[in-house]
Design a protein around this nucleic acid. Structure first.
Length: 486
RNA sequence: CGGGGUGUGGCGCAGUCCGGUAGCGCGCCUGCUUUGGGAGCAGGAGGUCCCGGGUUCGAAUCCCGGCGCCCCGACCA
C-alpha cells in the first residue's frame, strides 16, 4: 500500500494531498471560471445522500422547502448595515441584461436573508401566520479571493433555512435546534464529530445577534467551520418591515433565524477520513457501499463468477445495501481495487474461482477497524446477511476514530500565550482557554497566533474544571476554543 | 492584492540556458494473449508548444506586453 501512484502523501504536503485526492476520486474538477468547480457524479452522489438525510431531518422538525430567486436587488443587500459591510467585498453584481444597463444592479445571492424576509413581510399579518419554517436548496456566490475545491469556492451549493417567529425565545430555540440537527448529521452521517458553541462578536454572521457553529477538527489539526445557525433577532425584520399583530393586538417585529450547511461538508469528509490512498466515504453517504469484483482466468470461470457476482449484488440490494458489480473486462482486479479505494467505497467483495468452489467470498474494508483485519473470508450467504451490520459497524468505527483524534489533539486549561503558540506552531489542534470576553485580547491573540476563537464552547464540551486563568489576562468569564481554521 | 511557482497531445513531464520545425511515461483506439493488488506484446490515433507583438532565413526556445492556473500570505457567516 506504499505505492499510491502519484498522490502526494499527507505527511509531505497536506494541501497538495487534498487537491490531488479530490481530483483522483473524481469528486470534482476545476472549471474554466476561476474559483468555481464542476461537481462530478461521484461527488454529487455523495451530496445527494447528504441532501436526502438533512432534508428529512428538516422535514421531521416541521420545515418545508421553497425556492427564492438567484438575483437580489442591490438595495435589499444594503438595508442591513452589518450585512452589507460583511458581504459587499465578495458580491458578484449583474449590471447589464438584455443588452441594456439595468436601472438597479442585481446581486447574485451570497445568501438570501434579504429577499426571503422581504417576501415574509408580504405573507405575515398576524401571529397566526407564524412561525414560518422554510428551507431552500440552492447555489450561492461569494467572490472569494482564494478558493479551494469544496472548502471555499466562488459558487457553492448549500441549503439555507429561514424562519420567522413571534417571540425571541422561540427563535432562539429554533436556532439551537438546528445547530443540534447539524451536529447529529455530522456525527451520524459524515462521522465527523464537531464541537459546538457560540461565535464571538467578531466572528459572527454579518447581521446576526448571535451565531452558533459546528467546528470540526481536520486531520492537519485545522478547524473547519462546518455548519452555522444564527439568531437574527429583529435586525432583518426591522429593515424589511416584517411585522405581525400579536394576540394582544399590538404590532410587533418578528424574530428570525437562518442556518446553513454547504458542499464544504464534502471537503470536511475528505479531510476527516481520507488517507494516502484516497478518500474514505462513510457508508451512509456512499453512493456505492459495496463494490463486487469478480475475478476469473478462463472464459468458463468468467461467466460463472460473474453470474454469482450479480446474484450476490441483487441479494445485497434486497437487503438495502447499495452495490455495484465491476465486471469491466479490460481492467485487472488490482486496477479495480485501487480505483474503488481511491474513491473511498467502504467495502469490496471479491469473488474468484477459488471462492466459488468453497462457496465463500472475500470481504475487504476500505480501512481496518481498530484491532481487526481488513480482510474477511465469509460463506457467501453470511456475507449477504451480515453486510448491513458490518456497514453500520464501519460507520461507527470511523466516528470513533475521528472522535479519538479530535480529543487527542485538544489541549485544555491553556492560559499562557507562549504555550498556545507552541501548540499551534507544532502539532496544531483545538486549544481551550479561559477568556475575559475582551475583544482587544481576542484581536491580539489572533494577531500573534493566527488562530481565531472558533467558539465559546457549549457546556457539553467544556473542561471538567472551569478555567481559572485566562488567556491575555483578566477574569475568566467563559471558556473558548482556539484553532487555526480553513 | 503582495510573494513564489507554473503553462508543451486527455494527464504528468522533458526539451528552453546554447534558435533548425516536438519527444517520453501514463492514458486512449485495434488485435491477440491476460485477470486473486495498478497486465504483456504488436500496431495506431492524438499537439494553434497559454495569448499578442517583436527579433531572425527560421522561435516551444531570445526580447517586450498580456492572461490563466496552483501554492503561501492578506482577506474570507
Amino acid at each position: 500500500m506504499a505505492d499510491t501512484k502519484g498522490i502526494t502523501p499527507r505527511g509531505e504536503d497536506f494541501s497538495a494531498w487534498y487537491n490531488e485526492v479530490v481530483l483522483a476520486a473524481e469528486l470534482a474538477d476545476y472549471s474554466p471560471v476561476r474559483g468555481s468547480m464542476v461537481i462530478r457524479p461521484w461527488g454529487y452522489g455523495i451530496w445527494e445522500n447528504m441532501q436526502r438525510a438533512l432534508d428529512s431531518l428538516f422535514k421531521e422538525t416541521g420545515h418545508e422547502n421553497a425556492y427564492f430567486p438567484l438575483l437580489i436587488p442591490m438595495s435589499f443587500i444594503e438595508k442591513e448595515k452589518e450585512h452589507v459591510e460583511g458581504f459587499a467585498p465578495e458580491l458578484a453584481v449583474v449590471t447589464q441584461a438584455g443588452g441594456k444597463e439595468l436601472e438597479e444592479p442585481l446581486v447574485v445571492r451570497p445568501t438570501s436573508e434579504t429577499i426571503i424576509y422581504h417576501m415574509y413581510a408580504k405573507w405575515v399579518q398576524s401571529y397566526r401566520d407564524l412561525p414560518i419554517l422554510l428551507n431552500q436548496w440552492c447555489n450561492v456566490m461569494r467572490w472569494e479571493l482564494r478558493t479551494r475545491l469544496f472548502l471555499r469556492t466562488a459558487e457553492f451549493l448549500w441549503q439555507e433555512g429561514h424562519t420567522a417567529h413571534a417571540t425571541a425565545a422561540e427563535a432562539e430555540e429554533e436556532a439551537r435546534r438546528m445547530l443540534g440537527i447539524y451536529r447529529r448529521f455530522m456525527e451520524e452521517w459524515i462521522a465527523m464529530p464537531p464541537i459546538t458553541g457560540m461565535k464571538t462578536d467578531s466572528e459572527k454572521f454579518a447581521g446576526a445577534v448571535r451565531s452558533y457553529s459546528c467546528e470540526a477538527l481536520m486531520q492537519d489539526n485545522k478547524a473547519l467551520q462546518a455548519g452555522t445557525s444564527h439568531f437574527l433577532g429583529q435586525n432583518f425584520a426591522r429593515q424589511f418591515d416584517l411585522k405581525f399583530q400579536s394576540e394582544e393586538g399590538k404590532e410587533e417585529y418578528a424574530w428570525n433565524t437562518s442556518w446553513g450547511v454547504s458542499t464544504r461538508l464534502i471537503g470536511g469528509m475528505v479531510l476527516t477520513h481520507g488517507d494516502d490512498v484516497g478518500i474514505v466515504v462513510p457508508p451512509r453517504l456512499a453512493p456505492i457501499q459495496v463494490v463486487v469484483v469478480p475475478i476469473w482466468k478462463s472464459v468458463a470461470e468468467g461467466s460463472a463468477v460473474r453470474e454469482k457476482a450479480h446474484l450476490l449484488s441483487r441479494l445485497l440490494k434486497d437487503a438495502g445495501v447499495r452495490t455495484r458489480v465491476d465486471d469491466r473486462d479490460h481492467l485487472t482486479p488490482g486496477a479495480k481495487f485501487w480505483e474503488w479505494e481511491r474513491k473511498g467505497v467502504p467495502f469490496r467483495l471479491e469473488i474468484g474461482p477459488k471462492d466459488l468452489e468453497k462457496g465463500q467470498v472475500v470481504l475487504v474494508r476500505r480501512v481496518a477497524l481498530e484491532g481487526e483485519s481488513r480482510k474477511l473470508f465469509l460463506p457467501e450467504g453470511q456475507a449477504v446477511t451480515e453486510l448491513p451490520g458490518y456497514l453500520e459497524e464501519f460507520q461507527k468505527g470511523l466516528l470513533e476514530a475521528a472522535r479519538k483524534r479530535r480529543e487527542a489533539n485538544s489541549y485544555r486549561g491553556v492560559a499562557d500565550l507562549g504555550e498556545m503558540k507552541e501548540i499551534l506552531d507544532g502539532p496544531g489542534g483545538f486549544v481551550y482557554t479561559g477568556w475575559s470576553g475582551d475583544p482587544a485580547v481576542e484581536a491580539r491573540v489572533k494577531e500573534e497566533t493566527r488562530a481565531t476563537v472558533r467558539v465559546i464552547v457549549d457546556p457539553e464540551f467544556r473542561s471538567a474544571e472551569p478555567p481559572r486563568r485566562c488567556i491575555g489576562g483578566g477574569e475568566a468569564r467563559m471558556e473558548v476554543v482556539w484553532a487555526r481554521a480553513y
